[in-house]
Structure formats: C-alpha cells, structure tokens
C-alpha cells in the first residue's frame, strides 16, 4: 500500500466515523428518556397549545424516522412517510447547513454559542497538550537515558503520582494556591479590558490561562513520560543503537539521530488514542476554572437540562477529536517509513 493510499484510507475512515457519530448523536437523544420536547418545555405558564406550537417549531411533531413515530416509548408509525419529512432528515439537513438547533436556555442558536467556545477549548487543550508532551517527553527521555539512577526513580515516582490525581481535584488545589499568589482564578479575561490595547488583552488572557494549562500539563505529562521512558528504553536496547555506538557516534548524536524518531512512534500513537480521553480533562478544568469552552458548555447544559446545547457540544467535541486523530495518523505515516509496507 502506498502512502497516498494510506492517507486516502484514513480520510475515508474519518469521514465514515463522523457519519456514524452523527447518527449516534441523533438516536441517543431520542432513544434515551430525555425527550427534547418534554425536557425543554417545563415552563408552568405554557398552555398545552403553546407546547404543541413549540414542538412544531422545533420539528418535534414529525415522526423520528420512517416506521417509527417516537423511539421512547417505542411507537411504530407509518413507513410510507416522506423520508425527507422526518426528524432524522431535518436534523441531517440542519447539520449540513451548520445549524445545531436553538438553546432552550437563552434561545440563541447553538452554533453561535458553541463557535466561540470551540476556539477557547482548542486554545486550552492545544497549549496543555503541547506543554505536557514537551515536558513529558523530555523527562521521559532523561529517565530512560539515566535508567536506574535517582533521576529515573524520581521521574517515575512523579509521573505515577500525577497520573493518579483526579484532574478536577488538582484544579481545585491549584485554585487555592493560585488565589493565594494573586493569579486570576476564573474565566478567560478580566471584564472591562476591551478598551485596552490588544497586547494588554493578550497578556490578560495569558495570565488567565496559567492555572488551567498548568493543571492540564501536570495531569497528562505523567502518562507521556511513562510512554516515552519505556519506548526509549526499548529503542536504546536495540541492536542498531549498538551499531551506532560501534560506528563511533557520540551519545548525543545517537540519541538525536537514532533513538528519538524511533522512540517517538509509540508516543504519537498514544497521543492519537488519548485525544478522546484528554477531552475529559478539558471538561473538568473548564468547570473548575469557569473557562468558557466546550467542556464548560457541557457542564452548564447538563445542569440546565439544555439538550440542544448538550447535543451540539457533544457533536462538536467528537468531530474535533476525530479530525485531530486523523492528523495524528497522518503524522505517523510520515514518521514511520514501514507504514507503506503494511
């Protein structure tokens, strides 16, 4: 299989997964008991007709899909309805035109609410991932190279401990520490800075990012450190390292030219596999630090029973993770020449 075929295959696979997630997302919210129409409309002032009007407005009076009127409780309906006139196709059509529904909470379009939050989350996860990978990989390398020394044992103990910390709890602890040291402890920016020069605003955002990013980095660097350590240990006991040594290369040359790239491969795989899990960290950190991101949106939507936002946020998170996964796969194919031989 050539590289272009590999890439095509990965692209196809990502698209297929996204399609599956769209379908899952639709049915999840119809099969499980939280009927969007019932849950969203609990204003006692509303009369039955008004509720019906709202249902019509959200298209919830239509059958869910051909043959099924509703799925919870399961009510079989006519199979001969125009498929384009079912909730499923309306949902798909709306999705394709970038419409995610309207928030029950504040009646704003979900897409608008989530769009700005998506970038905040990417900013947080991006900064956290990059930092934790750099720090984790560096100490992992150091630990492997200096295996069975106090440096190694120290790094190992640290990584196991930070790995065991619940993200939200570490966030809380850092919140205590941060507030004692005068760091901003919530939100993304200090209110009322919009008239300040751009540079000042950025600096402010940067200060707000310190604690969330620190939490993120600490939690995830442990695993990267462990992976890097064990994968570099494997590489360093390979015969080709002995060959490199026999060739008269210095230790740093060997590390740079023969060990790093090889040891990075398992790390990249883990980063790709982990993307889904790192979102969990974002949800917790955004909740603790009131960071206005997608994870925070999930938390708020759950508490307000705002299902369109929950549905939209879940969809956006999943699709982002799938795309990030695709990028990791493509990176891997450039790192490992053997991928074509598969």
């Amino acid at each position: 299989m050539s590289r272009s075929q590999y890439i095509l295959k990965k692209f196809g696979w990502a698209l297929l997964t996204i399609a599956l997630v769209l379908i899952l997302n639709f049915f999840l919210f119809r099969v499980l008991p939280g009927d969007p129409a019932r849950a969203g409309v609990h204003d006692p002032r509303l009369k039955k007709e008004s509720i019906e009007a709202i249902r019509v407005r959200y298209g919830l009076d239509k059958p869910v899909i051909n043959c099924f009127e509703t799925l919870n409780p399961v009510k079989v309906g006519s199979c001969s309805v125009n498929p384009l006139d079912t909730q499923f196709f309306i949902y798909m059509k709306n999705l394709l035109s970038g419409e995610l529904g309207i928030s029950y909470h504040n009646n704003r379009p979900v897409a608008t609410i989530l769009a700005e939050r998506l970038w905040n989350t990417i900013l947080l996860i991006g900064a956290g991932q990059i930092l934790s990978i750099i720090v984790g990989a560096f100490f992992g390398m150091l630990a492997a190279w200096k295996a069975r020394t106090s440096i190694d044992y120290g790094a190992l103990a640290t990584s196991l401990v930070v790995w065991s910390l619940p993200t939200f709890w570490l966030g809380i602890i850092l919140l205590f520490w941060g507030s004692a040291n005068g760091l901003p402890i919530g939100g993304k920016a200090t209110p009322g800075l919009s008239s300040y020069p751009l540079w000042e605003q950025w600096k402010d955002i940067g200060r707000h990012m310190i604690l969330p990013t620190l939490t993120y980095t600490l939690v995830y660097m442990g695993e990267y450190m462990l992976i890097m350590r064990s994968s570099l240990l494997d590489v360093l006991s390979e015969d080709y390292i002995l060959t490199a040594k026999a060739k008269g290369l210095g230790i740093f040359q060997i590390l740079r030219d023969h060990a790093l790239k090889n040891a990075m491969l398992p790390l990249v795989t883990i980063i790709a596999i982990n993307l889904g899990f790192t979102v969990a960290g974002a949800v917790q950190i955004e909740t603790v630090f009131s960071w206005p991101g997608l994870g925070g949106a999930v938390f708020e939507a759950v508490n307000r029973r705002d299902f369109p936002v929950l549905q939209g946020a879940f969809l956006l998170i999943t699709v982002t993770v799938i795309l990030a996964n695709l990028i990791a796969d493509l990176m891997y194919s450039y790192l490992d020449p053997r991928i074509q031989a598969e």
Binding site: L24, G34, G276, V283, L310, Q311, T318, V321, I322
Partner: peptide, 15 residues
Amino acid sequence: VIPELPLMVVIIALT
C-alpha cells in the same frame, strides 16, 4: 475515538 466522558455525561444526563 468518541470521547468517553462527554458520552457518559450525555447518557447519564438523559437517564
């Protein structure tokens, strides 16, 4: 590839 925690949150929020 589907993020685990958000999916858990969604399911438990609905049930």
